[in-house]
């Protein structure tokens, strides 16, 4: 059974089809740009605080070992 305790918004549910289409185009063109840039050797590795969306699978304990 599916229970819903807040309104997801019908409009928002329908809009996602278009949002996704736009997202597809954005991702495609980004991918293309990336290919062109790396071909021209323009890709720079940005040292960002945050990594990318994919979780690096690790089944070993990955606890914080920061200093106190």
């Amino acid at each position: 059974m599916h229970f819903l305790y807040f309104d997801p918004g019908l409009g928002a549910m329908i809009a996602q089809a278009i949002v996704a289409a736009v997202a597809g185009v954005v991702l495609f063109s980004k991918g293309l740009m990336f290919k062109i840039k790396s071909f021209l050797g323009l890709v720079k590795n940005d040292d960002d605080l945050f990594d990318d969306i994919d979780v690096k699978e690790s089944d070993i304990e990955n606890k914080n070992t920061g200093d106190k």
Partner: peptide, 28 residues
């Protein structure tokens, strides 16, 4: 879209579909 469907008080949420790939595109 939200504004347009705001008045839909029948509560019969119409079935909308979106493939997983499309949803992943939104999230990415």
């Amino acid at each position: 879209f939200e504004d347009k469907h705001n008045d839909d008080y029948e509560g019969k949420s119409k079935k909308t579909t979106l493939s997983k790939k499309a949803q992943l595109n939104i999230i990415t």
